Amino acid sequence: MPPLREVIARHGLSASKALGQNFLFDEQLLDRIAAIPGSLEGKQVLEVGPGPGGLTRALLRAGARVTAIEMDRRCLPALAEVEAAFPGKLKVIEGDAMKISPADLFDGPYAIVANLPYNVGTALFTGWLSGEAWPPQWSSLTLMFQEEVARRIIADPDTSAYGRLAVLAQWRSKAKLAMKVHRSAFTPPPKVMSAIVHVEPGEAPEGVSMRVLERVTEAAFGQRRKMLRQSLKGVPGALDALEGLGIDPQRRAETLSVEEFVSVGRALTRK
C-alpha cells in the first residue's frame, strides 16, 4: 500500500481536535503496538477510531481479522483502500463506538486494540470493564491513552494516581504499562505523552457485584480528601461494612487496597 502520509494528503485529511484525533505514521512503531497482545493470526480484533488506518494496517499485517468503528466520514475512503488491499479481512462500521456494543459484532472471542480518541477513551475503557458477566467476551485490551490516564489505570494504593480507575481495572483483571509513546510520534503532536496499557481478564472474586463496587468506589474517590466515614456515609450499609471488616473509617480512600475495596463490595452485595 502507499505510505499513509501520501494517502492522507491525497484525501485532504487532517486530525480533528473535536474528535480527539492524532495520527501515527511510523509503521515500525505501529507493528510493535500490534504485537503487544501476542499472535493475532486469524483472530478477531476490534479497533475503535482507526482514522486513516495506520494501526489497522499493522493489525492486518499481523494476520488479524479486523472490525473497525469510525465516526469520521472523512476517513472512510482511506479505510476503503485498506479494505480493498486486504480482501475479506477488514470490516468498517461507520458509527459512534459509545453507542455500539461489541457483543453485537462478534460471535466469539475478540481482542480490542486501539489508539483511543482522547475525549472518549476513559469512558469506553470503563464500559468494557464493567460487565457483570465474567470472564468477558474480549480476550485482552491493548489501548493507548494519555500517559497520565495510563498511570491511573496501573496505580498502586497510597499514590496520587490511585483511584477508582485503578480499582475497576485491577479487581478482576491484570493491567500493565506495555509501552510509552513520545508525543513527537504523532501528527499533530499532542501536548502530552501517551502510553499503551495492556489488560487481560483475571479471575473474578466471588460474591461481589460490579454495580455495588462501582458505587462504593465512586463515593469513596468522589471525595478522596475526606475520611471514609464522610465519603461513604451516603452509601447504605457501607459504614457498618467497614466496622465489620475492621477497616478504620478515619482512613482515606487512596489508602485502601483493591482487595479491601472488594471486601467492602462483597459485604454490601450480601446485604
Rank of each mutant, 00 (worst) to 15 (best):
M1V: 11
G12E: 05
G12R: 03
L19I: 05
Q21S: 04
R32D: 15
I36L: 14
I36P: 03
G42Q: 04
G53W: 08
R57G: 02
R65P: 04
A68R: 07
E70T: 11
M71S: 15
C75N: 07
L76F: 09
L76H: 06
L76W: 09
E83W: 04
E83L: 07
F86Q: 08
P87R: 02
V92H: 02
G95F: 07
S101C: 06
F106T: 00
Y110Q: 01
Y110M: 01
L124D: 08
W134I: 00
S139H: 00
L143F: 06
M144H: 14
F145K: 02
V149F: 10
D156H: 13
P157D: 03
P157R: 04
D158L: 12
T159V: 15
S160F: 05
R164V: 08
A169K: 14
W171T: 07
S173T: 10
F186G: 07
F186E: 04
T187C: 00
P190I: 05
H198M: 15
H198G: 13
G202T: 08
E203C: 07
A204K: 12
A204S: 04
V216H: 00
V216M: 01
F221L: 05
R224W: 11
R225P: 06
R225H: 09
K226H: 10
M227E: 15
K233V: 15
P236W: 06
A238V: 11
L239M: 12
L245A: 14
P249K: 03
E254V: 07
E254K: 06
S257P: 00
E260L: 10
E260D: 13
E260H: 12
F261S: 11
V262G: 05
L268G: 10
T269E: 04
